[in-house]
Simulated assay, not measured.
Amino acid sequence: MNSQKNHFELFDLPVGFMLDSGLLAERYRALVRAVRTDVLSDQGDETNRLLAHIDLAYQTLTEPLARAEYLFRLYGVEGVESGADEDPPSTKFVEEIECQEALIAATNRSDPGAALSEVLTRLAERGAALDKELHQLFADPTPTNLNAAREVVRQLQVLARCRRETEERQAKLLRSRPD
């Protein structure tokens, strides 16, 4: 196995944001099996290094935000994580405030569990729309599209934080209910 391949090449997948997660998982399992069965001699360090490389590649491609950041690196541009495109702090702040307001409103409703579920549904729908937009932008990785993709990734990061907070509030609500 050539550990110099990029993550997509490693799993014999086309480079792009959208991918077949079932096919990725299938190829991951096959690759791990192949590495483990090919090593008949005492090459434990090399095997562990290869397995670690395969695991890192799989985890990166499995997680959409990590996959997007990896694509930015492949295309040779600064991603969101690098802080290259500093949006005005007010933009992120406004989005975070809107999330907090939605969570407070949901928590104060007569059925907060259902309201929080509605928030999660809206977040999932918005996330799916942003994923689709990223797919289109990465399908044609021009500088303009890659800049636009950074903004979409930033929005996905805000959505992910809001989703985590919503799930935490939902779990807290479930724990506080009398049995």
Rank of each mutant, 00 (worst) to 15 (best):
Q170F: 11
A66H: 11
L174K: 12
K5Y: 08
R73D: 15
T60Y: 02
N145I: 02
R36Y: 02
G113I: 03
D38V: 02
A129D: 11
L134A: 07
N6V: 02
T91M: 07
R122E: 15
E95P: 04
Q59S: 15
K172T: 11
F138D: 00
V152L: 02
A148F: 01
L173K: 02
T37C: 01
A114F: 07
D38N: 07
P89Y: 09
R109G: 13
A105P: 01
F11Q: 04
F11H: 06
R175I: 04
R177Y: 05
L71Q: 01
E98H: 10
L10I: 03
G113A: 06
F17K: 00
E167F: 05
D20S: 04
I54V: 15
A34R: 09
S117L: 10
R164V: 11
L146G: 01
E26Y: 04
R33Y: 02
A124N: 05
D140P: 01
E81L: 09
E46N: 08
N108P: 03
L116P: 03
L137E: 01
R49I: 00
F8N: 04
E165K: 09
D140C: 08
G16W: 00
S110K: 09
D38Y: 01
E151D: 11
A30F: 06
F17G: 01
V32L: 02
R67Y: 01
R109S: 15
L23Y: 10
E95D: 15
M18R: 14
Q136A: 14
F72A: 06
